[in-house]
């Protein structure tokens, strides 16, 4: 499918961070050296004011991607085309490199949970989600990337393994995958998800972006709170994935208890260092006679 957004492929992006309002003035003033920013689309698709203007000004200096939470891809409610219209308008305006949302449902009977609710992994859900993504992509005129979500439960009647479900959705809908490695780890702790099996089997040809974030340990489970630095176990999984595919843009997410920009920046630099180290390992060593 042709994309009408920015012509530069997203895999030319390196490491970015999620744009958060408290950092915008500082970023626009200092223009820190970062490859790109991810815009939380729902914060910026408003009619006007500073919230929209922030996105436009950042896009004048950096490549941006747009990450949505409102498509409700797995919902049984009708697709919200008014919402998609606003997303599309901003996507064109900021020339987004990638547009993404989550493999979940958020609405029921026109009511919005504002949370990413888990889908069962069944043939019915697969067909339902594929059909909706195809229609969403047709409307947007571009492929989207779907993200694996963190969850606190799985359903007894799921018949498909999560990674197979994600791959099948991407292949059948011809969309991309936004692979959140922190979500994989959170699901490992909460639901016994097998991490390395997932990492080995995810369709790398369709992975267009990686997410890294911090979680909160609640003893009984871990909460995907995006309120801390990336956990060492998640960095290890990240490195493992990069050994399979290295030219994927990586994003650091942070949504609660937002720290100084330097903290996010340091996390991004850590991701850069891991990538560079792996690239160095790949360089051939020539014997000098």
């Amino acid at each position: 499918m042709r994309s009408f957004y920015a012509s530069v492929a997203s895999n030319t992006l390196g490491v970015g961070v999620g744009l958060r309002s408290p950092h915008v003035a500082r970023i626009l003033k200092d223009l820190p050296s970062l490859d790109w920013f991810e815009l939380l689309a729902d914060n910026h698709i408003v009619a006007g004011g500073w919230a929209r203007q922030q996105a436009i000004e950042i896009a004048q200096h950096y490549p941006v991607t747009m990450h949505c939470v409102g498509m409700s891809i797995g919902s049984c409610d009708p697709i919200n085309f008014d919402y998609l219209k606003k997303v599309k308008q901003l996507a064109v305006e900021v020339q987004t490199r990638l547009l993404s949302d989550h493999l979940c449902w958020t609405t029921w009977n026109s009511q919005n949970s504002h949370d990413l609710l888990p889908l069962p992994f069944t043939e019915e859900a697969l067909a339902h989600v594929v059909d909706r993504i195809v229609r969403i992509q047709d409307y947007l005129g571009s492929r989207i990337a779907i993200e694996n979500v963190s969850s606190y439960l799985t359903y007894k009647h799921s018949t498909i393994e999560e990674v197979e479900f994600v791959n099948s959705v991407a292949q059948q809908a011809d969309c991309l995958i936004l692979f959140d490695i922190n979500n994989l780890y959170v699901n490992h702790v909460n639901n016994g998800q097998q991490t390395y099996r997932y990492l080995n089997n995810i369709d790398i040809t369709r992975v267009a972006e990686l997410h890294l974030a911090g979680f909160e340990n609640k003893e009984q489970y871990v909460l995907d709170a995006h309120n801390d630095t990336v956990h060492d176990n998640v960095w290890a999984l990240y490195e493992y994935f990069l050994r399979r595919k290295i030219d994927v843009p990586t994003l650091i997410e942070w949504d609660h208890n937002i720290p100084e920009f330097e903290v996010l920046y340091a996390e991004a630099m850590k991701a850069c260092q891991i990538k560079q180290q792996l690239l160095r390992e790949r360089e051939p060593v020539y014997a000098v006679s």
């Binding site: 016994g192 489970y221 909460l223």
Partner: peptide
């Protein structure tokens, strides 16, 4: 409909969603 381990019951798992939605 929810799979469960004894130390984290379906009710407790749903509580995470209830709390998250309410806090949001």
């Amino acid at each position: 409909m929810i799979r469960s381990k004894s130390d984290f019951s379906p009710e407790q798992r749903m509580d995470v969603y209830r709390t998250t939605a309410r806090s949001a």
